[in-house]
Nucleic acid binder design. Structure first.
Lengths: 332, 332
DNA sequence: AGCAAGGATGTAAACGTTTACAATTTAGGA
DNA sequence: TCCTAAATTGTAAACGTTTACATCCTTGCT
């Protein structure tokens, strides 16, 4: 492995001068620059970032922690994050936790051990105490799923309003029995969406029945079995609001398999790419994924520059996307 | 930022002894270990990996380069890779290139600059010359998409045989006009699948017509517009073999939109999670995604241990998965 | 000629670790 | 009592950079 010392030896200059050439310092003569650069090209020398980082104590890297790649939601988020990072000279590295605590912990150690300059968390399993401890010492920002009581910058949408609008859309189609498929865990994201769902029902004078809420995994299977559970009740709904498109797709799948898709409407949430292509399209709530990613990095950069920068909470706009999976209530 | 020196000062021991405690060296007394560990706990000291890496010149990190996260194909791959890495004490960091050369280059620099110990490439845009240069100096392995003439370890499936079997399945259903939707780029993956497609046709005595092959992006839109192109010919096919499930889904979507889905069969490739849920299910070829990920890391680890370890090429078993999108030819 | 200023380069310390080697202490055996 | 070996700890170099500071050499001015 050829190091800056080798280049120094080969050129006859000192390592300091070589370093200056590498870093485009103005205080080096044209002649010298030319000769050093030539030697660098002829060997295949690449500055060792470990050495550089150690000296400058900056890695120019941002860690983005994702729960899983099952969901294409994060594809756009990551594009936004990548663009924002690149514009600031940073690089995004992704860690996929598969929701395992020990894996998440091992990635977080990258932050503690100075291998990355900051971290964007999405759907973390950390609680507010962990988060406060972490965010007190290191740059951290939170994306999409807020943790109430955690003192850090975050970017999300108004989940209450969005869920309310989604439910209202179903109500406007004449539906009166509307169920909800929500996540298992008590994240603010689930709570907010559930609250929005309830507010819509109550404002429309419909009875809010907690037994109409089924908890499931945020994936196809979860939606499928949740729909099964709902539709085999003695009082099945005519519409189902799912907390994620993946669940909505599973739900529609169940309905189609049982010839119920014409009678029962489904709304999803997120507007992932495939929602447009599934069945006749999944009606859903669009999240500005690219912008969420972008802003999460932007907020993080503020913290990287100054760990004491004030925390900010960004609420980005959402929007209803109506497609084929929601239709007027037949029995209505 | 508290360093090992601070711990040394606080305990009264030397940094060497503290280091030994951290690294669980046996040559340290119980008494000392206890006292040092106590102080470490009371401060929130975390060893700086940059310092450690610099000294030991090993980062215990593996970079996995992915083209995009649009495709859930890589979700399972990454799970396999993560498990294999973890078992060996390594950590996976993911880089998403979005198929941009400068982004890919910026991640590859992590390898050159010793920030990761090795790299798994998937669908790289590097050619065999780039790859040979890289793999000559650094541990690199290739996943899924082989580059002919590149001298490195790789793991894949038998794409020729798999595509042949997929096509044969359509033939066995009575189809005679079978089109193919394939990727744009001349990757071995596309070539192999195209060859398998042709072999199946020729062995069945059907004429191989290159104009029946349409090139498209590996995503929904690509499949959609490819299907449109094919179905608006004067001699539309009764079956379409797509080189990826994402394209197959787009193709089926087009067919449904035009009431053609009962007449025209579609086969995909990959067996991504959502293929089971789309429409009546996408018939496809299963790739052992988890194992591909696992083995790609395994092969890489061999190279990390010894850069001169012999190159290996692993071919993992595939399997046909028949679902609702392929059915007997109506006109037959 | 003498001097100051500025440009180019070198010297060496520093970043946070690990580890070979040296030094010290302790115990046991003759 | 003295010597050896083992156990424990310390010293200092090394990993590859960057950079403050020092040094040297021009150049131009008086």
């Amino acid at each position: 492995m050829v190091s800056i010392k080798d280049i120094a030896a080969l050129t006859g200059y000192s390592v300091a001068t070589v370093s200056r050439v590498i870093n485009q310092s103005p205080k080096v003569s044209e002649e010298t620059r030319r000769r050093v650069e030539e030697v660098i090209r002829s060997t295949d020398y690449h500055p060792n970032f470990i050495g550089r980082n150690l000296r400058s104590s900056a890695s120019m890297k941002i860690l983005m922690l994702l729960p899983t790649l099952d969901n294409t939601f994060f594809s756009d988020v990551l594009r936004g994050a990548g663009d924002a990072a690149m514009a600031a000279g940073y690089q995004i590295v992704v860690g996929v936790t598969n929701k395992k605590a020990e894996v998440e912990e091992s990635y977080i150690s990258m932050l503690r051990s100075c291998q990355v300059d900051g971290m964007v968390l999405t759907n973390t399993i950390l609680d507010k105490f962990d988060l406060n401890r972490l965010a007190g010492s290191y740059p951290v920002s939170l994306l999409s799923d807020i943790v109430e009581g955690a003192d850090l910058s975050c970017v999300t949408i108004d989940n209450v309003a969005a869920a309310k609008e989604a439910t209202e859309h179903l109500i406007s189609l004449g539906h009166r029995r509307i169920s909800m498929v929500n996540g298992y865990y008590y994240r603010s994201l689930s709570i907010d969406r559930e609250n929005g769902y309830r507010m819509a029902l109550e404002q429309a004078g419909l009875t809010y029945d907690p037994t109409q809420i089924v908890r499931a995994d945020y994936n196809f299977k979860g939606g499928y079995s949740a729909a099964k559970k709902l539709m085999t009740r003695k009082d099945p709904p005519s519409a189902i609001f799912c907390s994620a498109d993946s669940m909505a797709i599973g739900a529609v799948r169940y309905l189609m398999d049982h010839g119920l898709d014409k009678q029962v409407s489904v709304m999803g949430f997120d507007n992932v790419q495939e929602s447009e292509y599934f069945f006749n399209g999944i009606s859903t709530v669009n999240q500005p994924k690219y912008e969420l990613g972008q802003q999460s990095v932007q907020l993080l950069l503020e913290k990287i520059q100054d760990i004491h920068a004030p925390n900010r909470r960004l609420i980005l706009p959402h929007e209803l996307v109506i497609r084929g999976s929601s239709h007027p209530c037949l029995g209505g």
